[in-house]
Amino acid sequence: MMNIKAAGIRQNRIQSGIFGILLKLVGAVIMIYPVVWMFMGSFKSNYEIFGDTQTFFPSSWDFSKYVSGWAGFGGVSFGTFFLNSFVVAGLGTIGAVASSSVVAFGFSRCKFRGRGIWFACMLLTMMLPSQVTMIPKYIIFNQLGWVGTKLPLIVPSFTSEAFFVFLIMQFIRGIPMDLDEAAKIDGSSMARFFVSIILPLTKPAMVTAAIFSFMWKWEDFMGPLLYLNKPRTYTASLAIKMFNDSTSLSDWGALFAMSTLSLIPILLIFVFFQKYLVEGIATSGLKG
């Protein structure tokens, strides 16, 4: 009797395992379809993309769009554009994650007067459409003499970003208060408590923030458009847009080719960081 039941359970396990994998595979196909389509598009001529909508595969595997696209604009190649993107997204991410976790700790673990008001101010910055603050912002950066440099794209990140502060706060608030009491009895300062206890415990949140931050800064288009004046300082997101000028000939193949290349760094960052995301953390020992 017992044996039969166990076998039944095992049977179930296997079935659900296969079923689970199948489900994940179907999901993966649906999720990945447009990227594959874009990849195929990078080998097609404009006519193949728009005239002949029913074929999925290109007529030939011609890498010339990668070559002509990589050549870039006005003598500046995509090598430079990608390098610029790395500088902006990389430094910006370091700044955003570091400053946001400090601020998040302040908001969630320090009791100080005016906390509610400052927190409201921070949420407020998430709610106003950027279109209407864009011009006053430009004027401020212009007065600071920063227009034409990458500073307006990087420095504000070092003053924390509302989304990440809020995100990390939610994680810090999940860490038991007993730790604080213990630290206070220990006599260690808040700064040490933050660095040695809280910081390691919020690693998943910080990793999540880093992935998002890199991706958004990599894709950001408005900032580079307004603040970068010389083509050799343009980022990849800005340069890709130039393939599609509505008043002249668009090069769709090159657009898709460079868009495909532009995905790779974000994917690599994701794969690299997700290791830390799922490797698990030591909170288990602290609770209960």
Binding site: G106, C110, K137, S160
Partner: peptide, 18 residues
């Protein structure tokens, strides 16, 4: 109070400045 403000100082500076 002082500690709290020190921690959120990056935000306050960015908020007032930008």
């Amino acid at each position: 109070n002082l500690e709290g403000y020190l921690f959120i100082m990056p935000f306050i500076i960015g908020f007032l400045l930008f």
